[in-house]
Amino acid sequence: MPSVIIEKDRCKGCELCINACPEHVLAMSEEINAKGYFFPMAAHPENCTGCRYCLLVCPDVAIQVENKGKVTKRPDALTEKGFSYCPGCTHGVIHRLVAEVLDELGVRERTVGIAPVGCSVLAYEFFACDMQEASHGRAMAVATGIKRGRPDLVVFTYQGDGDLASIGMAETIHSANRGEKITVIFVNNAIYGMTGGQMAPTTLPGQVASTCPTGRDVNLAGYPIRVVELLKELKTPAYLARVTVDDPKHVLAAKKAIRQAFKYQLEGTCFSLIEVLSTCPIGWGMQPHEACGWLEENMVPYYPLGEVKVPEPAVVKAGS
């Protein structure tokens, strides 16, 4: 019989797993863990089908699933260190997906990741590969330096919306335009999380942030920037996709896109960027499951999901 294994001391009590479980296997315990959070337990273990939805949405890699004698495990490409993200923040899910892809492609030991400035500034503590910490906005410039100097390495950046689409927009456009053979994981949560909830270049019209207390006024701040659509217009071949991680199915689709992005890098095909719509429950002032709902209702209509650009198989002729 399948079963859920909960590493309770990794849990931050966000309850996303409880919401995700279609069979109502999980319920919050009445105990608290070492961090002081209530954590889930299998209240109805007999109902578990081994679907792994709980694992897929857990932002702290606190859940593993046993099914038919096989147990899922923490990816090798993650260190043992617990994430420093707020409870229910989906950064952790995205970290896990990137790590799983590095493991599955067998490239962890020749990968260099680049951490940005923003909530994921400490990403170098979480990925179990060589890492560089970039200055704000410059992750893709740093990646360019590494990849051009050492094309044999697998290079990825992990950047938020302020880093990638505001201060680092020039680096973003030009790295994409040069067709740097790097993989960019762009986490768009429509707000500046680390500095305390200020307006991002991707904050939605009317969305309240600490520097637009009455909501984003598009007459003053312009419309939120759709990064992948913007980059799509460049003639240089690229793989551009937008995904989200607000529910288990979207998490699976996100992983597929991330995997494809790294494969294009390994084949030397093109620049790849995956925009991941992510939640910021604290910055948005919502419970984690509400944040997922808000993302679905508000962000997805403005930021449509799917592959936005795939590299053309045809060779572009010089001068065309």
């Binding site: 560089q132 200055s135 410059r138 410039a141 740093v142 100097g149 680096e171 456009i173």
Partner: peptide, 18 residues
């Protein structure tokens, strides 16, 4: 590079990669 800002950060990456 697209700017001197970017160039100096490319240096950072390349030097960091040895």
């Amino acid at each position: 590079a697209e700017s001197e800002v970017a160039a100096s950060n490319m240096l950072y990456g390349a030097s960091g990669a040895g």
